[in-house]
Design a protein around this nucleic acid. Structure first.
Lengths: 199, 199, 199, 199
DNA sequence: CCTTAAGCGAGACGGTACGTCGGGTCTTCGT
DNA sequence: ACGAAGACCCGACGTACCGTCTCGCTTAAGG
């Protein structure tokens, strides 16, 4: 029953690898629009069917390959809210700063804008993880007495991701200054949610 | 006056208007990808040539029509930094919140990412205007003694535009909470750049 | 045997047939200029790609389909030079008299005139076959003692094809009178190349 | 009244000449398809309107310019049927042998095939003149006693024009051998229409 | 062992958009 | 009126991808 899902010939790992590499190279070299399924397959020395067998659309393919390793492993505790936020901001800047990611993001955003269903499929998991990560940082700051309650993790997530990952896409000459953003957000948070006047 | 290139038959205003309207309608109804030159022309009851005569590419066309009325006329002085930033944030939210703008932005970003030259052509004027606008607000706050010097207008621009206009594109269900963003940025600014008048 | 390029999905015979039929119908109904690749595809219920996959240009397509069945199977021996030439002339008149052929010929000629390479590709085989056919008829007449040697098959080919197939294209109201042409050519040949057996 | 057809500004002869020259050059250099109204106008340093003011279509334009000087002035009497036909054949070969004529003919034929009305407009006068010319030659031959009555001028016209002017268009490497054609036609005529056994 | 389901390269298939070009008409100038 | 310039509508061109499908072949896993 449940076991026999593995019938037939298994996928070849060699091909998974070749496709991944081809996507990375094409994204960096030709951009999102130039990263055609056809070219990916050709570059990987593979039939187009092998690609469609793995993902249902170009968006899913690119998302899977680009975001694949972008998991946030464990929130390092730096001891201060600002430190934690700076660390997170730099993580985000690193992940979003690769050539492939810079090439992929706007294209993915465009396709997700056009197809809300796709947006849910792809984005929800990722954004929920980020939100959860931010919530953890905020809780720790509360615990330390740095911050009062009521800060919105989603707001903070946007304040970090927006300026660091998205805005530079339209003006790619300057870096996102992640730590400046994080410091300002940290200060703003503390100012708008002061620790309860304990004692 | 100004270089009246009076040679040849002039453009018909009726057609400019029909094309503009068609683009707005198609962007709202079909999204950026569905806003084909072909469909724009058909919808406007116009030959495709008339469109290609006006803009060299779909990106320029959409940008011109969407951004066209998006000028920031004069910064209203609300009397406080926070008030000015909230007003600006709500302006941005309004401009970026129309259906056409929400549909157009990611597509434009994608094409600008793929073609830096296009990005310069289109974006520079717009972003410079925004930056100048923010600089004015910051200067006024300095003048009032609310803020010390050294705040970076570009950083502030990103902190507003990113969370309000860009981030929601990936999670279109929730609004960008523009005033919450503006208040936090305002507080953060004041905390990180305190007025010098200190004794 | 013969290089069975067995890779990939094979062409669908159903589509070859549909395209052929569509071309015949459109040539007869709309003429050469009206026989657009686009309309051929639409009429055949087929994608345009399927047409471009088969021929590189409209000229090759039309030529292939119109000339396709225009092979001269075997020269019937009527017993006299005149009989053979009349038979050939009527063959030519039949082949060139179909609506499709009348529509296709001038268009093809125009494109061949503009592109000598195309002219070679398309014309050589066909004209060589005709020339060979005429040479056979002349040889038989020599063998019978009707004709002396030295008659030029290419000259005779032109004397038949020109008046019968080409000239009527410019004055399409009258038929080419193939047998009158053939009889005159036959008489002219015999008069200019009398048999040598003369004492 | 009849006189006031000359109202307004008259056409500039300089422009007529420039257009003629441009057409000749383009026909020879770029062929019929490459001889665009647009390019003709550009080459002549003239607006497109000036061309359309002179002819209603590309076909009429090309026809007028190519055939313009192709009138058969006066049938020279060589004293024999064969001589007259050879002279005519060489005339035809000369007229149809120029680069412009070779380029123009198939294109014109194609357009005339597609539009019978155009064919009448353009062709009738020309072909009637040729036919009349041939009839004159035949009559003279009858008068001399070389030829019996009943020979069809239109048939003879086709036997000359077809092989000499049209057939070479499809195999442009060889010349049309006009005199060989004329001699064979002459002999064929005499054989099929012998002079009445007078006396 | 040997069937069988799936993977695989190749490429045909129906669609659709692209950007260019030409045709023929019309409009606005200036001459 | 003519003439230059060029906008206008129409529609074909050939290219490129999309996502699906069908071939014939190969390759494990499971009966």
């Amino acid at each position: 029953m449940s076991a026999s899902l593995t019938s037939g010939r298994p996928r070849e790992a060699r091909i998974d690898a070749a496709i991944q590499e081809a996507i990375h190279e094409l994204l960096a070299r030709e951009g999102y629009a130039g990263t055609t399924i056809e070219r990916v397959a050709a570059q990987a020395g593979v039939g187009r069917g092998a690609v469609y067998r793995r993902w249902r659309s170009k968006a899913e393919m690119v998302f899977a390959v680009v975001v694949h390793s972008a998991d946030l492993p464990n929130p390092v505790d730096s001891g201060t809210l600002e430190g934690d936020l700076v660390a997170l901001a730099e993580r985000i800047a690193d992940l979003a700063g690769t050539d492939q990611a810079r090439a992929a993001f706007p294209g993915l955003a465009a396709e997700m804008g056009a197809d809300p269903e796709l947006a849910s499929t792809l984005g929800d998991g990722l954004f929920a993880a980020e939100r959860h990560y931010v919530a953890l940082i905020l809780e720790r700051a509360c615990g330390r007495g740095e911050l009062g309650p009521g800060a919105d993790p989603e707001l903070v997530r946007r304040l970090l991701v927006g300026p660091i990952a998205f805005t530079p896409l339209c003006a790619p000459r300057e870096r996102g200054q992640p730590s400046a953003v994080a410091r300002l957000v940290s200060a703003g948070l503390i100012a708008t949610h002061p620790p309860e006047k304990r004692r």
